[in-house]
Write a protein that binds this DNA or RNA. Structure first.
Lengths: 199, 199
DNA sequence: CATAATACCGAATGAGCATTCGAAGTTCGT
DNA sequence: ACGAACTTCGAATGCTCATTCGGTATTATG
C-alpha cells in the first residue's frame, strides 16, 4: 500500500476512490461472501486491475476491517449524544435511538450483512479488537438505556438481557429484508420495533 | 464418496460416524468460518485423515448443505403440527412455537451460526434451492400464525411484516449469546420474546 | 480362518488465489 | 510544457487447499 498523497488536492481524489473501493467491496462481499470474492472480481467491479487495489489497501482483510469500522464508528458517534442526557424519558430516548439505528442499518445494508457474515473472524481475529470493543460499547449503551427504562417503568419487559438481545436481533436482522423502495420506511420499521417495548 | 454400506449392521456404524463428522464440522465452521476451515483441520477434529472424510461426504459443500438441512428440516417437522389446528388461541400457539423454536436454536447453536454466516451462498447457490424453500415454508408458517393472532386481537403489533421480522431476528440471534449453563433457560428466553408480542 | 466388504491413510495433483513489483500512463503544480 | 507526484497495469510468484486414488488396515460373515 502506498502512503496517501500529501498534496491536499490529490488527497481528496484519493479518498474518493478509496471510498469507491470500500463501497464496491461491501456490495460484492455481501453478495458473494468475503472469502468467495477474489480480489480480481472486486477489482473488476471497481474498474481497476487487481494490483491497483493495493494502492488503496494493504490487504483484503484491512478492507474488511474498514467496512466494519465504517459501519460501527459513525453509528456509535451519532447515538452516544442521544443517550447522554439521563433526564429525558427513556421511552422517547429509545425511540430516537432505534430510529437512527434502523436508518443507519438501512443505508448500510451491505456493510451490515458483511458484518454479520464475518462474525467469526471479528470475534477471534487479533486485529479485530477495535471493532469488538466498539460493538461492546454500543451494546452497553443500549443495555443501559433499557435498564433505565425498565427501572422507571417506561418500558415493558421482564429481563433486560432478553430485551437487549431481542432488540439487537431484530434491528440487525433488518438488513436482510429491507428494500429501499419497499412498503415500509426505516422510521416505520423502527417504530414497529419500539412499540413492542413500550407499554 | 463411497456408497453407504449395504449390510445393516455396518450401516449403523457408518451413520454414527457420519453424524460425528457433521457435528464436528458445525463446530469448526461456526468458530473459524466455512471457507477459513481447511478439510485438514476438520479431519483432525474428527480424528481422521483428510482423505478419509470423502468416505462420508462427496464434497465440503455437501457437508455444509447437510448442516443446514439438519437445522431446518426437524424444526419445520416439529412446528408444523403445532400450528395446524386453527381453533387454538394464537397467543398460546405462538408461545408453544417459540418455545420449541428457541429450544431448537439453543441445542443447534453451531448449526444456526453456520446457517447465518453462510447466508450468501444459501441465497444464491444452485444446489441450495431445497434449503431456501424449507426456510420460506417455515417463515410462511410463522407469518400465518402472526396474521391470525393479529386479526383476532390476540397479539399486539401494527404491521405483520415487521412483527415477523422482529421475531425471526430475535430468535435466530439467540444463537449468538445463549450459553448452556447461563442464567436463562431456553424457555425463559422464549417467554421473554413472546411477552413482547402478547398484550 | 478365509475372504469379501468396509474404513481409512497420506502423498500427489492441479487449480485458484492474494500479493508483489517494475514499468507505463496520467495528472498536477509551476 | 516539464518534472515530480501519483495512479494503474499486468504478468510473475509462491503458497494454500480441495480432491483423488492406489494401497493398507480393520471388521464382519460363513
Amino acid at each position: 500500500m502506498a502512503a496517501p498523497p500529501s498534496r491536499p488536492a490529490l488527497r481528496e481524489r484519493y479518498d474518493r476512490r478509496q471510498q469507491e473501493v470500500v463501497d464496491a467491496a461491501a456490495g460484492v462481499f455481501a453478495r458473494r461472501g468475503y472469502d468467495q470474492t477474489t480480489v480480481q472480481e472486486l477489482a473488476k467491479e471497481v474498474g481497476i486491475a487487481a494490483g491497483g487495489l493495493y494502492h488503496y489497501f494493504g490487504s483484503k482483510e484491512q478492507l474488511l476491517i474498514r467496512i466494519c469500522d465504517e459501519l460501527m464508528d459513525p453509528l456509535l458517534a451519532r447515538i452516544e449524544p442521544l443517550v447522554a442526557d439521563e433526564t429525558v424519558d427513556p421511552a422517547q430516548q429509545l425511540r430516537a435511538v432505534v430510529r437512527l439505528w434502523v436508518e443507519h442499518v438501512c443505508t448500510h445494508r451491505d456493510h451490515m450483512l458483511v458484518f454479520q457474515q464475518e462474525r467469526h473472524v471479528i470475534e477471534h481475529g487479533a486485529q479485530w479488537r477495535g471493532v469488538r470493543t466498539t460493538r461492546k460499547r454500543f451494546e452497553r449503551m443500549i443495555e443501559d438505556l433499557l435498564g433505565r427504562g425498565g427501572r422507571e417503568g417506561a418500558l415493558r419487559f421482564d429481563d433486560r438481557r432478553v430485551a437487549l438481545s431481542a432488540l439487537l436481533g431484530m434491528v440487525n436482522h433488518t438488513a436482510q429484508w429491507y428494500r429501499p423502495r419497499g412498503r415500509l420506511t426505516p422510521q416505520e420499521i423502527a417504530d414497529g420495533y419500539v412499540d413492542l417495548l413500550v407499554p
